[in-house]
Amino acid sequence: MTRCNHTNLALIPENRPRVRCRHCHLTIEVKELGDGYCPECFESSGRKHYAFEPVATDTTGPSRYRCEDCGVVIEA
């Protein structure tokens, strides 16, 4: 067991809106879709796929914190 008192906590941000590519199934945050096409499909095949489906995010759960000293995740 760790002897850390967990006094240096950082809030882990809630889930942000994510989408899944219908071609390669990559799950990515909406804000990371710079040009609107799947970066994984483009990198692997050179084709730009624009078909995505939204991924459900759970925002009703407890807040999560990470101890910056030992790395443990705490739900409160």
Rank of each mutant, 00 (worst) to 15 (best):
C38G: 05
E53I: 13
T59F: 05
P54L: 08
T27C: 05
Y37A: 01
T60E: 15
F52E: 02
P62V: 05
P39G: 08
Y37L: 03
Y37T: 01
E43D: 12
D58M: 04
I28W: 00
L33M: 00
C41I: 05
Y37E: 00
C38K: 04
S44E: 13
H49P: 01
E32L: 15
G36A: 12
E32F: 11
T27R: 05
C41S: 03
R47F: 08
V30R: 10
E43Y: 12
D35L: 14
Y37P: 02
G34V: 15
T59A: 06
A56I: 12
T60C: 12
D58N: 06
D35A: 12
P54H: 07
R47N: 07
P54E: 09
K31F: 13
G46N: 01
P62F: 03
G61S: 05
E29Q: 11
G34L: 13
Y50P: 10
E29M: 10
G36F: 13
T57Q: 04
E29I: 09
E29S: 08
K48D: 03
V30G: 04
C41K: 03
T60N: 15
E29T: 11
P62M: 04
C38A: 05
A51Q: 12
V30F: 08
T57G: 03
T60L: 14
F52T: 00
T27S: 04
P54D: 09
Y50R: 12
S45M: 11
P54T: 09
G36D: 10
S44T: 13
P62D: 03
T57A: 03
G46K: 00
T60R: 14
D35Y: 13
E43W: 11
E53D: 15
C41T: 04
E29H: 11
T57P: 02
T27W: 02
K48P: 09
F52P: 01
E32Q: 13
G46D: 02
F52W: 03
K31G: 08
L33R: 01
K48C: 09
F52S: 00
I28N: 00
G61P: 05
Y50M: 09
K48N: 05
E40I: 13
C41E: 01
P39V: 14
K48W: 06
P54C: 07
K31A: 15
R47S: 06
T57E: 02
A51S: 10
P39D: 09
R47Y: 06
C41N: 02
R47H: 06
E53C: 07
K48R: 15
S44R: 12
I28S: 02
L33Y: 01
E40S: 15
V55H: 07
P62T: 03
K31M: 13
E43H: 12
L33D: 03
V30M: 10
E40V: 15
P54R: 08
G61F: 05
L33C: 00
I28L: 03
D58H: 04
V55A: 07
T27G: 01
V55Y: 08
Y50V: 10
D35M: 11
R47L: 09
V30P: 04
Y37Q: 01
P39T: 10
D58L: 05
C41Q: 01
T57W: 01
P54S: 07
D58Q: 04
P54W: 08
G46P: 03
G34E: 15
G46W: 02
Y50T: 13
D35K: 12
E29F: 14
Y50F: 15
G36C: 14
F42G: 05
P54V: 10
C38T: 06
L33S: 01
S45K: 10
K31Q: 15
G46L: 02
E40A: 15
E53S: 14
D35I: 10
E32W: 10
